[in-house]
Design a protein around this nucleic acid. Structure first.
Lengths: 193, 193
DNA sequence: TCTGGAAGTTACAGACCGGTAACACCCTAG
DNA sequence: CTAGGGTGTTACCGGTCTGTAACTTCCAGA
């Protein structure tokens, strides 16, 4: 009954996975450590033996989700080896799939909105991870033979970020519904230069 | 000393104004009613005589900020009477000004991120107000003589929404720095059809 | 079989949260 | 001058929050 997450894994892993899920669904300030440990089938003491504070748990969760997102790049390379342009289109397709499958947007962006304390430990890693993602997309655009790679990458980033937050305020039938169309015609117009 | 907001206005107005400011800066769940009333130079009882709950206060704050944003449209019309295309460019310029002046983004979008409870009274008004804003921008694009007015308006919306949330995670030097450039070349390419 | 460390349990501290009751005050309209 | 409504003050309620202490239980490895 207490088995929300696979029972036969280490408590630390269960806590991390459960916390990721609950922070994602309900927000960081919307979930207490008691609720996390209960859903993970463990207890508060065990959580504080593995994470020195809730803030540090948040940081670990963000790193974990970023690592998962980072693995998608490997899939693109595996699906279209060497074909960077195809990988860029795969990126667009994947982004729209994730938009359709989940309406709570990006954990890092959401965390940045929630955690307004300027010295919160999560803010630093959010910036780092987002910058790393940006560099990857810039490189992909560049290797795909696009001239203004940075500008295209940044525009696509803003479109996706906007789509994810727009879904949360106006829903999936709002402007975000046109994301693929916007992204594809953007890529086309950049390639035409 | 307790005079954060003009002392010689009605308590209700001071509370509303102070709450807007504090919710904007620190988030909704990051601010308690005690802190609001203290900053407004009044007390909790007075707050609860004018607003039936914190949630309702949040709703009123969102309506107030939306009303303020709505007034900007009148400025555009006053500055460029009848010239809808010039008003559209004024919209872009104003948006970028606000981006530079404030890094905490859109109150409604931020609230949608924070308030994950699906039945929260604010969610309804966020959707209504965002839809109203969308219709205004679509109408402006349409009246400016742009063919695919909805698509341009939605794309501009996502870009702006993305810029506002991107600033909060990666800062002002990130992708959002290129917002004006992106928006202007988008408008140009839509006009060229 | 024994032992040591990881995990679970219970209870608690101290702070903060949203919200309310009872009462004193002050200022203005009549 | 007086009545009454808006406001301020104090104290409180029940609940939740992060984080800790002290203790017990369990289990794997030697």
């Amino acid at each position: 009954m207490t088995d929300g997450v696979a029972e036969r894994s280490r408590p630390r892993d269960r806590i991390l996975e459960t916390a990721q899920d609950m922070f994602h669904k309900h927000g960081i300030k919307g979930v207490g450590v008691d609720a996390i440990t209960e859903a993970a089938g463990t207890n508060k003491m065990t959580l504080y033996r593995h994470f020195e504070s809730k803030d540090e748990l948040v940081v670990e969760c963000l790193r974990a989700t970023a690592a998962k997102a980072s693995r998608m790049w490997d899939e693109f390379e595996a699906q279209h080896p060497g074909d960077k342009l195809a990988q860029l289109h795969a990126w667009v397709r994947k982004a729209s799939e994730l938009l359709s499958a989940d309406s709570r947007g990006c954990d890092m962006a959401n965390a940045a909105v929630e955690l307004t304390e300027t010295d919160h430990p999560a803010r630093r890693v959010i910036k780092e991870l987002k910058e790393a993602q940006r560099e990857k997309l810039v490189a992909l655009c560049h290797d795909a033979g696009i001239g203004q790679a940075e500008l295209l990458a940044d525009t696509l980033s803003l479109l996706l970020e906007g789509a994810r937050v727009s879904m949360q305020s106006v829903g999936a039938e709002g402007p975000s519904a046109q994301f693929v169309r916007m992204a594809e015609s953007l890529i086309a117009s950049f390639r035409a230069r």
